[in-house]
Each structure stands twice: as structure tokens, then as C-alpha cells.
Computed example of a mutant assay.
Amino acid sequence: MKTFECGQNFLFESFDNGQTYYGPFKDRIVKLVQITPHIIGIDSNVKKNLKNEMEIFLRCKDDYNEMLKVIAIDDLMNEVISYSKGLRLLKQEEFECSISYLLSQCSNIPRIKHHLRQLGEIYGQKVRYEKREFFLFPTREDLLDVSEDTFRELGFGYRAKYIWNFINCHPGFLLEEFEDSEEFNKNLQCIDGIGKKVADCIQLFGYGDVTHFPVDIWIKRFMIQYYNEGKKASTKILSRLGRQLFKNWAGYAQEFIYYYARKNMKIEN
């Protein structure tokens, strides 16, 4: 299931080589099964509002075919689409997503997953589902009494102060409170530890703003090589270029490119 193998969510895991995924979502553990290439089976330990919650989580109301048309700007992107098609963006819970990407700085996917599991196992609620033990991701309230030193003891390193500050000093945001998408993004970047890339990831994956185009090392290499004539450019410039090329579906294009680039290893150093 490409959606859970493209680096946007770090808490869903598979026990059968990618056919079935389990993970925490808000107050429940969710099970997603790939029945056919176009059909996903859904189950959970909490049945209430499951269909509605999963339609939001899986962004089922996005016009997927329209998105594909918009981002198919040339032969290269047609190749990217062919390889990545079926991947969906997820509308994640804002707090969990923000903590995930604060922890992602100068890190890698296995380490991010490890740190998030630590938080769940120590501070989250234990849930038994299908004879397996899972942990819900802790809420902000669950973590308010955790000290910066404790986060350091968990191995968060310099990120510990960012995590503590975010939990204690930033009780939450509503995208609609801001005049526009850019103002919200700039506001996120005013938070200690959140730069352009992390702000874009939080805005895209946590707040569902698919116009944003986060730039990590894979996206940077891809964009420079194929869309910037091989010329070096800043993260900010490449993010703007991605939004210009892929319009209101830039976030989808970014994730398709990321999945394609990592799997194909066609990016020159």
C-alpha cells in the first residue's frame, strides 16, 4: 500500500509485507486492507463514525483524476504518476503530525518511528486489537507534564526543547483563523524549531493544505536535476517552483515524486 510507504505517516505498520496496515488514529486503532488495487477494507476497535473518519483520513473527496491531469505536465511526470499511482495523501491529526515532523529534523524514518512509538508506549493509551497490543498516540494534555530533560532521556537530542516548547506554548491553530495559506505558513515558521520544510509538511499532512510543496533532500535533487536545469537552488525557491508547476495539487505531486525518487534511485548525487 503505497500510501503508507511514502514517508508521510510514521505510525502505521504492516505485519504481512504491505497487504494490511494497522495504526493509531485519534481515539482508535485502524486496520486497512488492500483487497484489490481500487478497494480498501477498513476495520477498527472503535466502530462509531468509522466510515466518516476514514473518508477524512484518506481524503476520499479529493478529485483524484483531476489531480492526475494537473500534475501530468510532461513525459517525466507521466512516468512518476505511472509508478506512484494509487498513493493517496492522508489528512492526519494535527498534533500528532506536528510532533512527527518536529522529530524528523536531521533524522531518518526508522528513528522517527522509534521515537513516536516511545511516546505512545510511555504516555499513550494501550489498546488490544486482534490479539495484538497497540498504543494510541498521546494527546497534548498527556504530555504537558513531561519535562524537556525527559524528552532528552528518550533520545530526542536537540529536538527535545522544540517538542517541549511546542507542547507547552502552542495550544493549537485553526487554518481558517489566518488570512491565507501563506500567513499560516509564516506563523508556523515563527515557532522555535519549525523551518520552511517542517512548516510545509505540517500544513500539507496535518492541516490538509495540498497547495504546499515540502522540499527534502530527495525532492531537492529531483527538482534541480529535472526542472531547474541542474542549477543549485534554495529550498524556498524549489518549493515555489513546485507550486508553480503543479498548481493547487502541488502536495500530491511532491509525494508522488518522493515515492518515485526513493524507490527508483535515479537521482544523481
Rank of each mutant, 00 (worst) to 15 (best):
K161F: 04
A199Q: 07
L188S: 11
S239N: 15
I71T: 03
Q34Y: 05
I267D: 09
K197L: 11
D192H: 11
Q189D: 11
I39C: 13
I81N: 05
S147Q: 01
W249E: 03
L238E: 06
G193P: 02
E121A: 09
A253W: 10
E229W: 12
K236W: 14
A250N: 15
R221Y: 10
D192T: 07
A250W: 09
I194M: 08
K85S: 15
R262H: 12
F246G: 00
P171M: 09
E130C: 08
R159K: 12
V146K: 14
L188A: 04
F135K: 01
V46H: 05
F10S: 01
N228H: 14
S44I: 02
W164F: 13
K31V: 03
F156Q: 03
Q254C: 13
Y259T: 07
N185P: 00
D145W: 09
E176Y: 11
Y21W: 12
F25N: 07
Q118E: 08
L204P: 04
D180G: 11
L102H: 04
I167N: 05
K26F: 09
F12K: 01
I191T: 09
I257C: 08
I191V: 14
W249Q: 10
N52D: 12
G41Q: 12
W218S: 03
Q244N: 14
D145L: 11
G251Q: 01
N17D: 13
F222V: 13
L136V: 06
A253G: 10
I71P: 02
E66W: 07
